[in-house]
Design a protein around this nucleic acid. Structure first.
Length: 280
DNA sequence: CAATCAACCTGGGTGC
DNA sequence: TGCACCCAGGTTGATT
């Protein structure tokens, strides 16, 4: 599932592959995923040049030369693939943004396609203005791995609620970008039970969790994301963080901290993996 | 405010 | 082989 490290990996790929290219066409067989409407988006983006790619939380922002922004959310099964024109259609390919290199003239192999693929079709591409970007930004919580995310800020977030600490970690309005995989693994690394009320996490534990979050998110980026079934980077390659999962999807296996047996429970409707022996 | 749940979708797995 | 069913989990929105 594309969380912060997966989206960051794609952001790095796209920055290298498509910045400076001009959008010459866009097509879709799933117009509901293009907002506010496919025709409005098409009118706005064709002819524009891609200036910059940014990530905010689990969102990718594609900045265009005309001042507009394409925000992309991959949700559970979205992919953004860069392919050469004419390459074989990808699985679940639903939106194609056709690109041309602005400087070179007749090199056919310079024509690229940015393909939005999405098995479950929960993802979306949305044309937004700078004002709308500001609003989205304000609705999202603090971004981990930035200087704004201090230990004090983290402790303040935790202190404000008695909800389970794992629920708070994945609440995008509190802290943004963390999803199920990295929340589970960070709690294991910090040896904290996912059901612990956030405001009962001690100062020492909060410090451990803060460091654990940084460590698992950076590991996720280093290994170019976690590919279970669907996640691929922009060139269609799998990530490798799944080979380093601490507890996620490791029910019944041994905890790397203490050798205990990893269990699974439901928390906030989602699968939660933890080691009952060392996460208290 | 918090908890629960349906909805948005599709494919993989299971049991009959 | 077919079919009904459940499950995966990011996000929104309705309900309790």
């Amino acid at each position: 599932m594309p969380e912060l490290p997966e989206v960051e990996t794609i952001k790095q790929d796209l920055s290298r592959l498509i910045v400076g290219k001009r959008i010459v066409d866009i097509t879709t067989d799933s117009p509901k995923q293009v907002r506010p409407s496919f025709n409005v988006v098409k009118k706005a983006v064709v002819g524009a040049t891609i200036r910059k790619i940014k990530r905010r939380a689990k969102l990718l922002m594609i900045f265009l030369s005309n001042g507009k922004i394409l925000a992309v959310h991959l949700k559970l099964t979205g992919r953004l693939l860069v392919r050469k024109k004419g390459e074989k259609r990808d699985d679940w390919q639903h939106v194609v943004i056709k690109l041309k290199n602005i400087k070179t003239k007749k090199q056919k192999n310079r024509e690229l396609e940015l393909r939005f693929c999405d098995m479950r079709r929960f993802g979306w591409i949305k044309l937004i203005s700078n004002d709308e970007l500001r609003i989205m930004n304000n609705e999202l919580g603090v971004e981990p791995l930035t200087k704004e995310f201090t230990i004090d800020r983290f402790r303040q977030v935790l202190s404000k609620t008695s909800r389970a600490v794992k629920i708070v970690l994945i609440d995008q309005k509190k802290i943004s970008g963390i999803g199920n995989i990295y929340a589970n693994d960070a709690l294991n690394l910090a040896k904290i039970n996912p059901r612990r009320p956030a405001n009962k996490v001690t100062k020492e534990e909060a410090k451990r969790l803060y460091k654990a979050l940084e460590r698992v998110l950076k590991a996720g980026i280093k290994y170019r994301g976690a590919s279970d079934q669907y996640y691929l980077d922009a060139l269609g390659h799998k990530g490798k963080y799944q080979d380093h999962f601490l507890v996620y999807q490791r029910e019944g296996k041994r905890c790397f901290n203490c050798g205990g047996e990893i269990r699974r429970l439901k928390l906030g409707g989602r699968g939660t993996f933890y080691c009952p022996a060392c996460q208290r």
